[in-house]
Every structure is written in structure tokens, then in C-alpha cells.
Computed example of a mutant assay.
Amino acid sequence: MKVNENTSLEGHRVVLVPYNAEHVPRYHEWMKSPELQQLTASEPLTLEQEYDMQRSWREDNDKCTFIILDKQRWADPSVEEEQCMVGDVNIFLTDPTDPSLAELEIMIAEPSYRGRGIGKEVTLMMMSYGVAKLGVRKFQAKIGLDNEISIGMFKKLHFQEVSVCKVFKEVTLEMTVDESVRTKLLDDATFMKERDYRQTCSNRQELVSQ
């Protein structure tokens, strides 16, 4: 999605940046993991296919994707951005007749970053962005039945279980964003700072060259 191609979102422990070509090799290595393939219901792709996917996520109007970076590591300009990657988060506008309906998907790919509250922080940031910038009024999350941690996290964020598909072994949870929910989401994410991604990258490069 073009709307976020020059946007970075800074939280307490993470920075969300657009999914660029330089992120693809690390992402491709992640997705060789059978565990991540199962958790994300994904098929393994070739590196060339992964580059094609990255381009579609950048260009298509129904996909909004950010790469999750470790903020502490990213604050060190000598560390390449690819080495700061810990996962990704996506909003998919799944219904062409209703652009206010969004499916939310988050992946913490690096095992050492799981169970530390990062998923919750990223989810709040992405929901706030979706409400404020994309006009989302209903969020869905489709999660594998055996992914109890993710199911628990979304329920703590007040998502409600609406259906279970035993064929695909997944549960669908939803949150309707009325005015009170919208206000709370934006209030809960006041810690998030939106910045110009091009400028932050330029600043990092300048620090390295000094």
C-alpha cells in the first residue's frame, strides 16, 4: 500500500517501517521455518517469489504492511536495519465492497522476542494506524486453533470470538470500532510517534558517516 511507503511508527520497544526490498532476504529465511509456515498458514516461496510478494504488498491498495524492528538495536546506526528485524504486521482489506473491514495479522518471527509484550504493543500501534489513517471500523483476526498465545492476546484486547472453522483449524475473532472504541484505541496508542521514514534513514546514515 502506497499510503505507508514513507512512514515509520515508533513505539516503546519497536519501530514499524515499510517492507522494502532490503528486508526480503531476512524475511525469506524466516519463512523457511515449518513452525512459522504453520502459524501463518503460508507456503514456502522461492526468493524471487518473495521479492514479487514484497512488491505486491507495496503496490496493492488492499495490503498495508510494516516490518517490526527492535527499537534498541535500531537506535544504533552501526547496526543494519535488516539485523533489527523481529517480525511483521499486516492489515488486509479483505472485502472490496467494504473498505472499512480489515483483517489484522501479526508475526513475531524471532523466538527470543516472543512472550515479552511486543505483540500487544505492535497490535495496538497497527490498530491505531488503521483507524486513524485507513478508516477501519471493524478488525478481524484469523488464528490457528493451536496458537493459544495469540488467541489470548487478541481476547485481552477485547476481540470477540465469532466463529471456529474446524476444516482450516482456525478461529475468527472480531472487534467493531464504534466511537468509544476508537477513542480508547487512539488514547492507548498516544505513545506512538509517526515519522518520515526517509528522514529517519537519512539521519541514521549521517550518524554512521560521522
Rank of each mutant, 00 (worst) to 15 (best):
K2F: 11
K2H: 11
T7C: 02
E10V: 14
G11C: 04
V14W: 00
V14D: 05
V14E: 01
L16G: 04
L16M: 10
V17G: 02
A21R: 12
E22C: 06
P25T: 00
P25R: 06
Y27K: 12
H28C: 09
K32H: 14
K32M: 13
K32T: 12
S33Y: 10
S33I: 03
S33H: 07
E35S: 10
Q38D: 11
T40H: 03
T40Q: 09
A41F: 10
S42N: 07
S42C: 03
E48R: 07
E50P: 05
Y51N: 08
Y51A: 02
D52V: 06
S56M: 12
W57I: 08
E59M: 09
D60Q: 05
N61L: 12
K63G: 01
K63A: 11
C64S: 08
I68N: 02
D70Q: 09
Q72H: 10
Q72S: 13
A75S: 15
D76N: 15
D76Q: 12
S78H: 15
E80Y: 12
E81I: 01
Q83Y: 05
C84T: 14
D88C: 03
N90R: 13
I91N: 05
I91Y: 05
F92A: 13
F92G: 03
L93D: 01
L93Q: 08
L93Y: 08
D95K: 11
D98R: 06
S100K: 08
L101A: 09
A102D: 03
E103M: 06
E103K: 09
L104F: 10
A109C: 11
A109W: 09
E110Y: 03
E110H: 04
R114C: 12
G115R: 07
V122D: 13
T123E: 01
T123D: 03
M125H: 04
M127L: 05
V131N: 02
A132G: 10
L134I: 02
L134G: 04
G135I: 10
R137K: 15
K138H: 00
Q140S: 13
A141Q: 00
A141N: 07
I143H: 08
D146W: 14
D146G: 04
D146H: 11
N147F: 07
N147Y: 05
N147P: 01
I149Q: 10
M153W: 07
F154R: 01
K156N: 11
H158N: 14
F159P: 06
V162W: 02
V164F: 13
K169M: 05
V171Y: 01
V171I: 15
T172V: 12
E174T: 15
E174S: 12
T176P: 06
V177A: 04
D178W: 03
D178M: 06
E179H: 12
S180K: 11
R182G: 02
T183Q: 15
T183L: 13
K184A: 14
K184Y: 01
L185Q: 00
D188E: 14
D188M: 03
T190E: 05
T190K: 14
M192I: 05
E194H: 01
E194T: 12
Y197W: 09
R198H: 14
Q199Y: 08
T200P: 02
S202H: 11
S202G: 13
N203T: 07
R204K: 11
L207Q: 15
V208L: 11
V208M: 10
S209E: 13
Q210I: 06
